[in-house]
């Protein structure tokens, strides 16, 4: 499965006057879960449709294992895709939906039952799809993606609308699929959904690449030299640290985030001034924070950050 990759090179696609994807390039490596993140309307779905040969790009290429999707002889054995879980005929049984897909590639019926069991849909699949919950549709869609046991997986917002149990299930599944050596590309407009799941992130905004980095790097960069402290005397601590050259941000009712001062100096200053402190520690950024930092300029529908910044 080593050559199983998704390669997007200089992809451009416009719809009328709107440029959906604007010179996007990135690669998805085997054995990793790559998160494909961006605000709504950033061009994620258009890119995925271009990779799957559904939309013809105006410029650039999208290749799977070095070939365009339309050239794949047995596409389901090479790429598994979940684009829109709701795209089912309401009066067809879930199992029959997988059966026609299996027949399109000459796959045996027992493969259908295998993937249904894998996603926990073996009983529900005997009912008509019209009565399925969103979670059941997502599971059936994932079963369809897994049908051909493909080395590359492409999932568009797979956790959208799932309950916490379903989200946990998908996370575990994605980790396992990557551990088996598959290249997994999973899109989301919520960074927190990808925390603990993605190894690598491709962040886009307005159809352009904003970041293409390992999650660990991204977190380290966003964490910086920040110190987080908890105190009942917020105002005194804030004034003292700001006076000594720190940049202090109020993050909560009792917590402050300080940059520009080392932890030792902060502890020293606060104890000299007898400001009561209950907790001091190096701050570890969440993926959400890292993402907000990256997309601050690129977001189409931005909102103001909730921390107030105080500088001396």
């Amino acid at each position: 499965m080593s050559d199983a990759t998704i390669e997007v090179r200089d992809l451009r696609k416009r719809f009328g006057r709107t440029v959906a994807v604007d010179g996007l390039s990135f690669t998805v490596q085997p054995g990793t879960v790559t998160g494909f993140v961006g605000p709504n309307g950033a061009g994620k779905s258009t890119t995925m449709r271009a990779i799957l040969g559904l939309d013809a790009p105006d410029q650039g290429t999208a290749l799977i294992g070095g070939r365009p999707y339309r050239d794949l002889r047995t596409p389901l054995l090479e790429v598994g895709a979940l684009l829109d879980a709701a795209a089912l005929h309401p009066s067809r049984r879930g199992r029959d939906h997988l059966r026609w897909l299996a027949h399109s590639h000459g796959l045996p019926t027992h493969r259908v039952d295998e993937v249904l069991e894998q996603v926990g849909m073996d009983k529900a699949a005997r009912r008509r799809a019209g009565g399925y919950s969103l979670g059941m549709r997502q599971r059936l869609g994932i079963a369809a993606a897994l049908l051909g046991d493909p080395p590359v997986l492409l999932l568009d917002e797979p956790v959208n609308g799932l309950d916490p149990e379903g989200i946990q299930w998908i996370r575990t599944l994605l980790r396992r699929l990557a551990a088996e050596g598959r290249a997994v590309l999973v899109s989301s407009h919520l960074m927190s959904e990808l925390e603990d799941t993605a190894d690598h992130l491709v962040v886009i905004g307005r159809g352009r690449l904003i970041a293409d980095r390992a999650v660990a790097d991204l977190l380290a960069a966003a964490s910086g030299d920040r110190v987080r402290l908890r105190t009942a005397a917020r105002t005194e601590a804030l004034e003292l640290l700001a006076r000594e050259g720190g940049t202090v941000t109020v993050t909560d009712r009792e917590t402050l985030t300080v940059t520009g001062l080392p932890v030792e100096r902060i502890v020293e200053l606060l104890s000299e001034a007898r400001v009561p402190v209950t907790e001091v520690g190096a701050h570890r950024a969440t993926l959400e924070e890292a993402y907000m930092e990256l997309t601050r300029e690129a977001v189409e529908f931005g909102s103001s950050p909730d921390g107030e910044e105080v500088t001396p």
């Binding site: 449709r49 799957l52 040969g53 559904l54 999707y69 339309r70 794949l72 596409p75 389901l76 790429v79 895709a81 684009l83 829109d84 709701a86 795209a87 089912l88 005929h89 309401p90 897909l101 399109s104 590639h105 369809a144």
Partner: peptide, 18 residues
């Protein structure tokens, strides 16, 4: 028509891209 009304056309075309 049902392929388009349900959106299944995309699934169909990923299975049979030609």
């Amino acid at each position: 028509g049902a392929e388009y009304s349900t959106g299944m056309i995309r699934t169909t075309l990923t299975a049979v891209p030609i």
